[in-house]
Amino acid sequence: MQRVNMIMAESPGLITICLLGYLLSAECTVFLDHENANKILNRPKRYNSGKLEEFVQGNLERECMEEKCSFEEAREVFENTERTTEFWKQYVDGDQCESNPCLNGGSCKDDINSYECWCPFGFEGKNCELDVTCNIKNGRCEQFCKNSADNKVVCSCTEGYRLAENQKSCEPAVPFPCGRVSVSQTSKLTRAETVFPDVDYVNSTEAETILDNITQSTQSFNDFTRVVGGEDAKPGQFPWQVVLNGKVDAFCGGSIVNEKWIVTAAHCVETGVKITVVAGEHNIEETEHTEQKRNVIRIIPHHNYNAAINKYNHDIALLELDEPLVLNSYVTPICIADKEYTNIFLKFGSGYVSGWGRVFHKGRSALVLQYLRVPLVDRATCLRSTKFTIYNNMFCAGFHEGGRDSCQGDSGGPHVTEVEGTSFLTGIISWGEECAMKGKYGIYTKVSRYVNWIKEKTKLT
């Protein structure tokens, strides 16, 4: 034993070699072989497995989906700052455009905790909710729209109204504003409101030439003092309507412009014939205590009207009353817009006519005020429907199939267009061939041609 100890002390290297040989010859039971080890760690190889990531292109799944990435790591994937920024906006807080917040056709661009709407022409605001041009839906104005110097929408209202708090709607500024039905039992019968379409306001006024200088022999019209197929109006439903009495009662109609003036057809009036105007009328054979009678003290036909040349060209006249009318729910003026808007309103496509005229061709006159909704007829169809001249200051309205029309005794009465609950004068009943005849239409004086003249002559002093 002493000898062994001496050998170990003198030859430590020998001992180490012996131990190493023993270990190498022993069977290893701690580690699995290569094949079995792979069965336990069965993990798919990654895209760049075996390579240094710093030297390969980034992978979106590896960089940002398996674990949260930084902007720089995302930049490695896209290799483009702009594309990385677009991805980053949604990656950080989701897609803010998912709810489609942009209105009126706006395009949404996502941002971090926010979004941006790219608005089409005519709109602005956070969600493109603000109209900035009158060309689109009248700028959301209830009545009139004008573009300011910086191309912003400025709404306005006709006389007797003021802008509401929203700067879009119009509200009454006087007790009985024009064009409004205020009798409670008839307010439910107000005709369907007309909503502004998209309009090209630059070209809204037709490029028409008034044929002022045409000389033409007097034409022989049949029954051209021209509501057939209409309905009984309720008291106060058309408070701007008046009836004219002269040699015979209810020979023509008219509309209240203001307390002192009536507008009617020029062919209705004769110099030297006494005319009485009755406002607030409903049943011409009954006294309903809503009527107001006034005498006409002055007749002003349009300066281009000449019955000797043509009885229905420039067929418009103004009547001055001896005493002002007292405005109330049964006696209310009709609204008159400017030339541009009167023309736009007419193009809405349908209007209402009213009167006490004959209820059928050569038949009896109506006792109760009649009204009828009539569609506008395109000019080409209008011209083809008659052998008589249709001037540019006239328009056609009615039904091709016949059966409904204005008729004798309705002449001078109103053709009105309702705009968001307020009625505007767009025409004056003038003439036609018979009444409600198939293929024939009622012919009306186009008020847009005469609004400046009306307003100039009827100013209240």
Rank of each mutant, 00 (worst) to 15 (best):
Q2T: 06
N5L: 13
I7M: 12
C18V: 11
T29R: 08
L32F: 07
D33L: 09
E35W: 06
N36D: 12
N38M: 07
P44Y: 10
N48D: 15
V56I: 11
N59M: 06
E66I: 04
E67R: 11
S70F: 07
F71W: 11
E73W: 04
N80K: 09
W88I: 15
G94K: 11
Q96Y: 10
L103A: 04
N104M: 02
N104W: 02
S107K: 09
S114W: 04
C117A: 00
C119A: 00
P120H: 05
E129G: 04
T133F: 06
T133E: 10
T133A: 14
C134G: 02
N135R: 14
Q143C: 00
F144I: 03
R162I: 11
K168H: 14
S169Y: 06
C178P: 02
V183P: 11
T186C: 05
T190Y: 08
E193G: 14
V195W: 13
D200S: 13
A207K: 13
I210H: 11
Q216N: 07
Q219K: 12
F224I: 11
F224D: 10
R226F: 07
V227C: 08
G230M: 09
E231H: 13
P239W: 01
V242D: 00
V248M: 07
F251V: 05
G253H: 08
G254S: 00
G254M: 00
S255R: 01
S255K: 00
E259C: 04
I262N: 00
T271W: 08
H282T: 13
N283A: 07
I284F: 13
K293H: 09
N304R: 13
Y305Q: 02
N306L: 05
N313A: 13
I316G: 01
N328M: 01
V331A: 06
K339N: 11
I344Y: 12
F348L: 08
S354I: 14
S354V: 12
G363D: 08
V368A: 11
Y371P: 06
D378T: 05
T381K: 06
L383I: 10
I390S: 11
M394W: 06
C396A: 02
A397P: 01
F399L: 11
H400A: 15
H400D: 14
D405R: 12
S406A: 09
S406M: 14
Q408E: 14
G409S: 12
S411Y: 14
G413V: 07
G413R: 03
H415K: 01
S423N: 15
F424K: 00
G427N: 01
E433R: 07
C435R: 04
A436Y: 07
A436P: 09
R449A: 15
N452D: 15
K457G: 05
K457A: 10
